[in-house]
Amino acid sequence: MRRNWMKWSLWVVAVVVLSLPVASWAQLTTQDIAARDNMEAHVGNLTGHANSGQAKYDYRRYCVGCHGDLGDGNGEVAQWLDPPMWPKPRDFQLGIFKCRSTPTGTLPTDQDLYDAISRGFDRSAMPIWNVFTKQQRVDLVAFVKHFSPRFVSEKPGTPIQIPPEPEVTADRVKNGREIFARVQCWKCHGVTGQANGPSASTLQDDLGRPIAAFNFTEGARPKCGSTDQDIYRIFMTGLDGTPMPSFADNIKPDEAWDLVFYLRTLMAQPSKEKDIARQLGLKPVSPNP
């Protein structure tokens, strides 16, 4: 009887001791998995849920072909997309996104991901998903986030402050040209904005795949949006995962508007800035100052 009792207590202690590390590990991972399964997204007054039937249905119906079951960008179609003409689908697991309102090296906000889904990506296989209701899109934002553990362990960055857009003047356009020369945008984008700068031909993304600099002159929409605010945000946050760096440390917030105005003069679309450049007879910057 006594012997039985000892045996029993030995078993209990052995089981408890052995299960301690397993239990703590299991607790961590199940918590982590639960946090990801229950991921939410907040845009305006809408809340999206990764575990909603709609999000799962929409992802499997519309997104999985390119972005894959695991959100790693290896869907069936991905193999047929050849960069730089056709960028590969985003790997959601890494949590690295081009189009953000947040500084380089930080997670995007829910609004940023919502805008990316709504806007689509020009010159890529990613269409504009404005067929979805707002609620569907916010649910998909939550679903996209649930693929990356980073959205559990990190908070999104603080969006950069964009001062109100000033009036376009000749001085501002001229100053924008100075900035374009000083920070040497032309190294990749070319002095005329034709994406033919000396470094354009060797550009690679973070995964070693060829990538093209934006050509301002052929009427294409920038991938992260074409409003003045979008363009401001692109060079002040950088496009993470690509060669495009953040210029936040090297261009003052108000001056950044001048660069936006100068970039407009390089674009094919008619604009007030283009008229000013024509009147001023602005020449492309010199690559050898």
Binding site: Q93, L94, I96, P149, Q184, T242, P245, D249, N250
Partner: peptide, 30 residues
Amino acid sequence: QTAHNIHPNPNPMTGNIPWNQSQPPGAPPV
């Protein structure tokens, strides 16, 4: 006196997050 960009490429799953900053001539240190 020429522009660089400083672009470390760690694996974000380790907790080291990649970033990419411009370094034109005269840029402040990062």
